[in-house]
Design a protein around this nucleic acid. Structure first.
Lengths: 206, 206
DNA sequence: ACGGATGTGGACTGTCAAGTCCAGTAACTT
DNA sequence: AAGTTACTGGACTTGACAGTCCACATCCGT
């Protein structure tokens, strides 16, 4: 078991593509089944790749999981960035809410937040992963906060609204709502949580 | 592997105590290390009990986990019931918030919500457990809602406040806040989430 | 005090997982 | 085309874990 800082740097073009294919498949599996329920053999089978390739591209399982986290971070931030980069008014937020609810409904409320479940599964187990996830949540919060800052600047929100704090509260409601929706197999708790979060934002309308 | 409805009914006094001791220890271990990271041998060692005793009291591991869920449900509801059964005004809620924050701070933000992490770890893995946890969240919500109902009756909250929905939003904020605090090892997100939840309640003050 | 029911100890089995190893094949370079 | 490097296959090792088995102890009624 090596312990080099991170994984090996990606060597050739083809190598980099292969590596990415592995990470993508692993991310899907981990998302659907939970971090602790996915074996390297599962990943090997899903990608049609052999055991030694996994160890060619990653030092060990943790190392691969760290890549998976990075991958999910990109996916999630990529999904939410557009909304908040062009955030103008309340309608955009409502649409965002509806998008999330529809997305969960489409999968019958199975699976929660990719980052949330990773956080729950790894926080007490892998400190590197925990820090990565903490960073991911921070970035996510920052993206939301930037949108809210724009709303402050356009006087859709009062100047005494603190975009950073509000962003955290929105994110917490989202995470909690997703978890409860997953558990109940019903989007209702998610809807309620997001509506409450948006109502709280609206209390800072001028 | 038997599949009888639940576990065997508790036979003698001593037996019941032994069983309870096992469940308690298992609940602690599962809480500290995560559902998927606790083996029956760990539980055996922690209780000084032998393997066959575990199978004497429980049909299999899932069965024991279901007992653990029930145990955590009792613990958590037991912790929160007093607050909401005697809920009078805003001060009680603030105290409740402070209690939770202090509790997490005392353990350096390690571990999240016992029920929340069980839900996250088992929702996609064990449908019986998922239903149990869904029920636990419902009960928890009901307890909160009863407190809020009393606040409506005493005109601390307006009559158009929906205690059930508000309870769910509070619970979601709590769950999300706990998860983010655990991940960041910082109570700040939890504080923000709970403050936002209470602020949202206050928006229903007359 | 004795005999069955109830409870208990710990060795044992089968399965599956992470991680290792090395021989083989493609690809690139000159 | 030869030789070096980059990549690939899959058998193998080691350990852990859920679940089984059976011999032994302890309790209880009578």
């Amino acid at each position: 078991m090596h312990d080099e800082p991170g994984a090996l740097p990606p060597p050739t073009q083809k190598g980099r593509e292969q590596r990415q294919r592995i990470v993508d498949a692993a991310a899907d599996l981990v998302f659907e089944r939970g971090v602790t329920e996915v074996s390297l053999d599962d990943i090997r089978e899903a990608t049609g790749v052999s055991k030694s390739q996994l160890y060619h591209y990653f030092n060990n399982k943790s190392d691969l999981l760290h890549a998976v986290i990075e991958c999910q971070r990109e996916r999630v931030l990529g999904n939410h960035r557009p909304t908040f980069q062009s955030l103008e008014g309340w309608d955009d937020l409502t649409q965002w809410r509806d998008m999330i609810v529809a997305h969960q409904a489409a999968r019958s409320c199975r699976y929660g937040c990719p980052l949330g479940s990773l956080a729950n599964g790894l926080a007490e187990l892998d400190d590197v992963a925990r820090n990565q996830l903490s960073g991911a949540f921070s970035s996510w919060g920052r993206i939301i906060a930037e949108g809210l800052t724009r709303m402050v600047e356009s006087h859709t929100l009062r100047a005494d609204a603190d975009p950073q704090e509000l962003a955290v509260s929105v994110l917490a409601s989202l995470q909690g709502g997703l978890l409860m929706a997953e558990t109940a197999r019903d989007t209702r708790p998610l809807e309620i949580a997001l509506d409450a979060a948006i109502a709280h934002l609206k209390s800072f309308a001028p």
